[in-house]
């Protein structure tokens, strides 16, 4: 009397190492208030709700959720979760499924200036997310097989460590976190009048 069971979204998440035990979540919200990303960066960030979406089979909503793309796997929440769920493992499993389904991150991830990159490999060393590799490829004006850094946008968390470490300013974040924008910000801050600190 066994029943054929079709694989649910939760099963798919569970099948990826790290994605197990999501069904144990009882929605206490400890992880949400523990998370620094929620606190400092993105008020809509909510691992509890994302786990819930996975459990309820809400695949598209989960893939489109900012939380899927923002977890930095710092694991602050892991030690706080009373159900001992490895939350970042579940979140990264959902991200993996999203990537497989053709979704990409909404973060403005690092870009390489292939004209100036000398492939010293420093950025590969410093990236905490192992998002950078050195590849051989044709680069216009330089040749058919040039070794340059390559960023996997689905792994990059846009932290900017690579930009800060690159000696030829060949890798960086776009727009408001570009080297120019950051320097401009600093100038503005330095030019601003000194504020008296009162007790």
């Amino acid at each position: 009397m066994s029943h054929e069971s079709s694989e649910t979204f939760a099963d798919q998440v569970r099948a990826i190492p790290g994605g197990e035990h999501l069904e144990m979540c009882y929605s206490c919200g400890t992880c949400v208030s523990k998370c620094m990303i929620q606190h400092k960066f993105e008020p809509e960030y909510n691992p509890r709700r994302l786990i819930r979406k996975a459990m309820m089979g809400m695949k598209q909503e989960a893939f489109g959720d900012k939380t899927t793309w923002l977890c930095s796997a710092c694991d602050l929440c892991y030690s706080a979760c009373p159900q001992e769920i490895h939350i970042s493992g579940v979140l990264l499993a959902i991200r993996e499924l999203a990537i497989q389904a053709g979704y990409t991150t909404f973060l403005k991830t690092a870009v390489v200036d292939e004209l100036t990159c000398v492939a010293c490999g420093l950025c590969v060393e410093v990236c905490p997310y192992e998002a950078i590799t050195l590849v051989e490829k044709p680069v216009m004006f330089r040749g058919k097989a040039v070794t340059v850094a390559h960023v996997d946008p689905n792994r990059c968390m846009a932290c900017g460590l690579c930009a800060a470490s690159c000696r030829s300013a060949s890798i960086g974040l776009p727009d408001e976190f570009s080297n120019e924008a950051v320097i401009e910000n600093l100038w503005e801050w330095m030019r601003s009048p000194v504020v008296e600190v009162t007790e």
């Binding site: 929605s27 206490c28 919200g29 400890t30 949400v32 208030s33 929620q38 606190h39 008020p43 909510n46 509890r48 709700r49």
Partner: peptide, 10 residues
């Protein structure tokens, strides 16, 4: 510090 789960807000 807590999430207010009903609001979905910290």
């Amino acid at each position: 510090h807590s999430e207010d789960v009903a609001l979905g807000r910290v």
